[in-house]
Design a protein around this nucleic acid. Structure first.
Ligand SMILES: [Mn+2]
Ligand SMILES: [Mn+2]
Ligand SMILES: [Mn+2]
Ligand SMILES: [Mn+2]
Lengths: 219, 219
DNA sequence: ATATTTTTTTAGCTTAATCTAAAATATATT
DNA sequence: AATATATTTTAGATTAAGCTAAAAAAATAT
């Protein structure tokens, strides 16, 4: 049986190794969990001892098949609870993550299958992230971010890369939500910001940081 | 902020002091939580230090007003989640308690108010226990148990005194659920058991232990 | 190639929550 | 009232998860 802390570490390592196949650094894990490198080293060694991660001193950490399976279980729970909170309890998309961070640790396999069924087997969470199925299978979504587009191109928002309340509240404020269409007007080389137009509304400016956190599909 | 363990102790002390006003013994607390007396002593001293309980060595423990308020918050969460599990996720009444034991520790005042609203502000949980309101007010239900009735009397089941799966599964099996009417046929002094008749069905025998755990109202 | 800086690990402490065994106190029995 | 038994508390360990500070290794700069 995994502890809450072990589950949080597994999930973090999974997310950090999502893009690249390379091992994840101790510092990256510690930063993501707002803890210290020494604590991360301890836990990584513990996960390795349990066969959930492979680890060589100073070389970073990777999840084993078993570790990946456990991490995906937690991610599944997290995202299903997010859907529940948004759809049934009317929380906003920037409020669900924090509560799901607790709910994801509830231990009851039956509970999560019942919840999935109750919600109508949703495929994506409120931030556009795919929900692993009961067998731990996940669809991979594109990773194209708004930041790589050129003036004149059009796209549709499909996912927010970061589920921090800071980003999501800001996107809400400028009327960017999943599914909206955006047209790139200008790119400003000086600070890598963009002028964009959201679905007929007036043009607005997006910083490079924000643009890098909006996952889109080209239209 | 209370830890999970502190919350479990508070809830246990509240329940144990429900009937009598007297302080609760260390052993009673330890037994209910399946832990050891030494551990209970430690935690009771900690609760007293935090102003949640009043405690004098060898004299047992009582909750303070503050402690009672916190305990009732946990009970409120526990019972609302039980309603959710039964009504929305179709768990049986003997399955909800264990999962609610985990869910009751989720920290989010807004979540529980939204859940309450979503469920239509239920007044009782699946076992007939009253749900404290947001201000910590609870209705007190009668404590008359089937075991004090005499042959010829009729009653309606309003609450199960114990939410263990053992009792509830058994009641299910003999078709006793909340609201059913029961007629006392005979009392057997030898083992204090009863012959009863449930809503027109054939007569059955109830042990004294079971009879003591069924809360009823006379008809 | 050496020296400096950064990253990572180790060593040693701390806190919460448990446990067992022994000591202290309270209760029950003769 | 004295003794025996039961209950409760204390003392001392243990385990999980964190921390800081120092040591070791790797990466970067000169
Ligand atoms: Mn979490
Ligand atoms: Mn999400
Ligand atoms: Mn609990
Ligand atoms: Mn209940």
């Amino acid at each position: 049986m995994l502890t809450r802390s072990e589950e949080n570490y597994l999930k973090t390592i999974l997310h950090l190794s999502e893009e690249t196949q390379k091992p994840v650094s101790t510092n990256a894990v510690a930063d993501k969990l707002s803890t210290k490198a020494a604590s991360a080293t301890d836990m990584i060694q513990k996960l390795a001892a349990k066969g959930l991660a492979s680890y060589y001193k100073y070389k970073g950490v990777k999840l084993t098949t078993k570790g990946t399976r456990e991490a995906l279980r937690v991610v599944r729970k997290h995202r299903l609870w997010e859907v529940f909170l948004l759809k049934e309890l009317h929380f906003k998309w920037d409020e669900v993550h924090e509560i799901a961070e607790q709910l994801e640790h509830i231990k009851s396999p039956l509970l999560i299958e019942r919840l999935d069924e109750h919600l109508g087997f949703p495929k994506f969470d409120p931030h556009g992230d795919p929900i692993p199925n009961a067998n731990g299978e996940v669809v991979t979504i594109p990773t194209t971010t708004l930041s790589i587009l050129n003036p004149g191109e059009r796209c549709r928002v499909i996912c927010a890369k970061d589920s921090s309340s800071d980003l999501l509240t800001y996107l809400d404020k400028i009327d960017i939500s999943l599914g909206v269409e955006i047209e790139i007007m200008e790119f400003h080389a000086f600070d890598s910001s963009f002028s964009i137009r959201v679905e007929g509304a007036g043009p607005i400016t997006l910083s490079s940081k924000v643009a890098e956190n909006i996952i889109i599909e080209r239209l």
